[in-house]
Design a protein around this nucleic acid. Structure first.
Lengths: 164, 164
DNA sequence: CTAAATACGACTAAAAAAGACGTATTTAAA
DNA sequence: TTTAAATACGTCTTTTTTAGTCGTATTTAG
């Protein structure tokens, strides 16, 4: 349940693998796929997608491969999702007609779907979660936390902190 | 992407609807399904599932229906997911053989999948999110936040709070 | 020139989610 | 006591999404 998308899973595995390498060292898609037992094609596609979005750098030809090109402490899990699957959820509210792109009533409307609220909170959560934090649990949360620009997130966090 | 399960969506809509009613007042599945334009069968099943798990109370026969039977500020989104979809994710790590239920190496193992970490964090997030908070965004976060018993959550929250 | 790699379009298969159908049971009220 | 309106629930079909495969082009080191 609430299964994580396989592409995202593969991306995390690949990133973790490449992260352990020396700077500048390339990793072939095949190396990862054979090592972790996942299909080459799919892993290959994932890396290509990440390459297009600038998270990894690719080098073609023999002895080619991929390497991480951004600081993973500054890339959120939200971004990774977006790179591989497009913008996160925002399930269409049952109160809206399908196709209506955005409603300026939103925020004031008192029948705003709980679904919308959930999506907002999930996105906040994803945005505040860095890949570095995910890939290395020992990595101190303080450094790798990505601040969101949404006041609510800070308020929520303070609330939790106060409960201790 | 990261689409929310429809059953969960329907449950939130039903709960929000019932929450607005006077205490003791029953709501028929049909009332909700026609009002929000979702299939009766599915809504019905969702309410039945919630009934079995004690989140709502059902009354059979003519003039029967459902009513909320727990304090939604004390029910987490995690619980709701569990009621409708079973235990949350825990996608099988590619390093483990499928079918092996649990590994005592977990926690010490240095090849622990990032996926496992992600799942843990997602569950923490879901556990700390009350239905009351979801159903009514104006509901103060402080009261409806459900404390998790995991130290990490508190540490993370403190870290975010300190960034302000 | 060849081998090993990325790049990418199109297709197929498998799995999960969503919904539909049928029927039994309960209960208030006519 | 019959009827109508509701829950309860097992099974099935359809639809959608996800995952994976195939084929081929391109790049580049040796």
């Amino acid at each position: 349940m609430n299964k994580i998308n396989r592409k995202v899973e593969y991306a995390l595995i690949a990133l973790k693998h490449m992260r352990a390498k020396a700077p500048g060292e390339l990793t072939a898609a095949k190396e990862i796929s054979t090592l972790y037992g996942c299909p080459f094609d799919v892993m290959s596609r994932v890396l290509q997608a990440l390459g297009k979005r600038g998270l990894v750098r690719s080098e073609q030809g023999a002895h080619g491969g991929y390497q991480i090109s951004r600081d993973l402490a500054k890339v959120s899990f939200y971004e990774l999702n977006e790179m591989l699957l497009g913008p996160v959820a925002v399930a269409k509210c049952l109160h809206e007609e399908a196709g209506e792109p955005s409603c300026e009533m939103r925020g004031k409307c008192n029948i705003v779907s709980p679904v919308t609220t959930l999506n907002r909170k999930l996105i906040e959560f994803y945005r505040g979660l860095s890949l570095a934090e995910l890939l290395d649990p020992r990595h101190a949360s303080v450094q790798s936390r990505i601040p969101t620009n949404i006041a609510q997130a800070a308020a929520d966090a303070a609330a939790v902190a106060e409960q201790r």
